[in-house]
Write a protein that binds this DNA or RNA. Structure first.
Lengths: 344, 344
DNA sequence: CTGTTAGCGCTTTCAA
DNA sequence: TTGAAAGCGCTAACAG
C-alpha cells in the first residue's frame, strides 16, 4: 500500500489494467457499456493502486463540478445555521458539495463572494438572506449558472426564491396580541432599511393595527439588530417611557427573549403583565421560561426546498414555479395568554 | 456587455489585447513582471470582455485549489456553528474557500466525506469534533494533504490539533461546586463511549470528587445526548430519586439549562436550592435566567486557530507545535453561588 | 518584460 | 465493448 498515493492517475490504472483511459473512465463513472470482466479487472487495479479520481480534472473536462456555492449572512446565527443544515442535507442527497461563505449582509462582500464562487465554477448558487440590489442583478443576469434565493427575494421576481410571507406572518403575530385584548402594543424590530426582514415585519405590525383600528404610536417602535441585547435595551426603553404598554411583538426570537428578561428585571411578569411574541422559532424559543410564543418559520425546509429547487435548475428539469412561498405557523406558548389561533 | 460571458477564456483576452496567454496569466495573478502599459491594456480588455478566470482550470494546472474541506458534526449545533465561523473568517483572510460537510459524528460518513473532499483536491482538511479511529488514521496517513483536528484529538498525537484540556476544565467546574460546600453533586453528561467529549468530562468530574474525598455515587450519573431535553429528563430522574442532591455539573449548556428548568418545574430554585454549572458557554448560557455559570470554551478561537494552523501547513511554514491547547475559563454567573474562582 | 510550449488528469466524441 | 485523440482553461518552466 503506497504511502502517499497522490499521483496515481487514470493513466496509471489504464496501463496497469491493460485497457484504455476511456475504459477506466467508464467504470469510474458507472457507464454500463463495459464488459463485466473488464470492469472487475479495472476495479481491482483501482483498489490495489489506491486510485482516487481527481475531481478538478473531471470538472475541467466535463464542465460540471458537483459543487454549489452558498452565500449566507452569518453561520453563527441560529436561523441561518438551521437553514444551512437543510441545504446541506439535500445537497448530500444529490451528491453535491457546498462551498459556504459568510457575507454579514454586506453588499460589497456578497458580490465579491458570488464572483469568487462563479470563478470556482460552481454548478449552482444559493443566495441567502441578503437584499438583492442592482449589483446583484447585474451579476445574476450575466451568468448562466442557476441561482436560487432563500429567505429573501427580489422585487422583480426574476430569480427563483423560497420564502415565507413575512408581512402576513408579522400581521398575524400582532393580531394574536390584539385578540388578547391589548391596545398598547409595542414593536421591537430590526432596521427599517432592511428590506428583507426589517421592513416587511414592521409593515405587518402596522397593518394589523390599522385593520383593527388601533392607533399607531410612533414611540412604540424600537429598532435594534435582532440580537438578544438589543431586545433587552429596547424593552427597557419602552417600559420606562410607556408604563401603560401591555404587549410587544418582537421581530426576532432573540429580541423577544431579551425583552422578556428586561421586563422581568423591571418587575413585570410575562405573560401576566405583558404579552410578548417573537419571530423565527429558533431553539432558544423553547429553551427559556416562559416558553416563547412565536411565529414558526420553517428554516430547515426553506434551505432544503431551495436546494432541491436548485438541483432541478441544474439538471434542466421542468420547474412548476420558481417562486416558492412556504407556510409558517403560529406557535403559541407561554409568553402570551391566547393559546388558540385559527388561521385566517 | 455580453449576456452570458461563460466562455471567454484567457486565450480570448490574449488575442484581443495582442499579447500572449502567459502575459494575461501574469496580470491576472498579480505577477510584477509586466510593463505597466501592458498591464493596463490587458486589464482593460479583461474588463470590457467581462473575463472571469476559471479556478478549476487553474487548480488543475497549478495543483492548488485554494479550497479547504471542513468536516463538522452538525452545523445546526451552536457550538460547531461558532467554531465554523472562526474557521471561515480566517479562511477568507487567507483567500481560501471552505467546503462544509456534516458528519453527524458517524464514522462511516466521516470517512466518506473526507474521501470526497480529497477527490476535490482540497489544499487542506479540517476535521472537527469526531473521534479519530483507525479508519481515519488509515486515510490520514496516506495523503499528503495537511490535516488539522479541531475540538478533538487523536491519541497518538500524530496529527496537529487544537483543543482545550477537557478533563481539567470539567474538574474545575466540579470543584466550583465543591468549593461552594456541596457534597451531593450529580453529573449529567454525554455517552461515556464518546471519547472526545463524553468521557473526558466524566473523568474530570470524577477526579474532582476523588481529590476532595467525596464519595462517588453511581446513581448520581445521568447520561444524555447533550441536548436540552435530555438534560431536562436527567434532572427529573435525579430529583425524584435523590432529593438530597444539591448540585449538578452538566457536560453541556443545553443540558444544564434543561436541568435548571426541570428543577424549577419541580419547585426548586437555582441557585438557592441547587447549584448548576454547564459546559461550553454558547450564547444560550447568557440568554436564560438565571444566567448560567459554565466553562467557557473559546469556540470561535478553536476554529480560527485551527484554520490558521492549517494555512501554515499548506504553505510549508515552520510550525512551533502542532498540538495547540487553548485556554478555557470559568464563567461564574447566577446558577451557582460562588462568584470568584482562582485559577489553579 | 514577454512569448512558446508542455502539460495538469479527465471526459468525450468518433471510429472501430 | 473498446480505444485514440482532441481538448477543457490555465500555469509554469524555459527562452529570448
Amino acid at each position: 500500500m503506497g504511502k502517499k498515493r497522490e499521483n496515481i492517475t487514470i493513466y496509471d490504472v489504464a496501463r496497469e489494467a491493460g485497457v484504455s483511459m476511456a475504459t477506466v473512465s467508464r467504470v469510474v463513472n458507472g457507464n454500463p457499456n463495459v464488459k463485466p470482466a473488464t470492469r472487475k479487472k479495472v476495479l481491482d487495479v483501482i483498489r490495489s493502486l489506491g486510485y482516487r479520481p481527481n475531481a478538478v480534472a473531471r470538472g475541467l473536462a466535463s464542465k460540471r463540478t458537483t459543487t454549489v456555492g452558498v452565500v449566507i449572512p452569518d453561520i453563527s446565527n441560529m436561523f441561518y445555521a438551521e437553514l444551512t443544515r437543510g441545504i446541506e442535507d439535500i445537497a448530500t442527497m444529490y451528491h453535491y458539495n457546498i462551498i459556504l461563505s459568510n457575507s454579514d449582509l454586506k453588499t460589497e462582500k456578497e458580490i465579491q463572494l458570488i464572483e469568487a464562487l462563479l470563478e470556482k465554477q460552481v454548478d449552482g448558487l444559493l443566495f441567502l438572506g441578503g437584499e438583492v440590489t442592482d449589483s446583484h442583478r447585474e451579476i445574476f443576469n450575466h451568468t448562466s449558472v442557476p441561482i436560487v434565493l432563500a429567505a429573501t427575494r427580489e422585487e422583480h421576481q426574476e430569480k427563483p426564491s423560497v420564502t415565507i410571507d413575512q408581512i402576513q406572518a408579522a400581521k398575524e403575530a400582532t393580531s394574536v396580541l390584539i385578540l388578547e385584548g391589548h391596545q398598547q402594543i409595542a414593536y421591537i424590530g430590526g432596521p427599517l432599511t432592511d428590506s428583507v426582514n426589517g421592513y416587511p415585519r414592521y409593515i405587518g405590525y402596522k397593518e394589523a393595527l390599522e385593520e383593527n383600528e388601533i392607533p399607531f404610536v410612533e414611540s412604540f417602535i424600537q429598532l435594534g439588530d435582532y440580537r438578544y441585547k438589543s431586545g433587552y435595551e429596547a424593552m427597557k426603553n419602552l417600559l420606562t417611557s410607556h408604563s401603560s404598554m401591555t404587549a410587544v411583538f418582537a421581530a426576532s426570537d432573540e429580541m423577544a427573549v431579551g425583552a422578556i428578561h428586561a421586563a422581568q428585571d423591571l418587575g413585570r411578569s410575562v405573560p401576566e403583565d405583558l404579552s410578548i411574541i417573537g419571530f423565527e422559532d429558533i431553539p432558544l424559543a423553547s429553551q427559556v421560561r416562559p416558553l416563547l410564543s412565536t411565529v414558526s418559520v420553517p428554516m430547515y425546509d426553506i434551505g432544503a426546498v431551495a436546494m432541491r429547487l436548485l438541483t432541478k435548475y441544474m439538471n434542466n428539469e421542468h420547474v412548476e414555479s420558481g417562486q416558492v412561498v412556504l407556510q409558517y405557523s403560529l406557535e403559541l406558548r407561554d409568553s402570551t395568554r391566547l393559546k388558540e389561533w385559527e388561521e385566517k
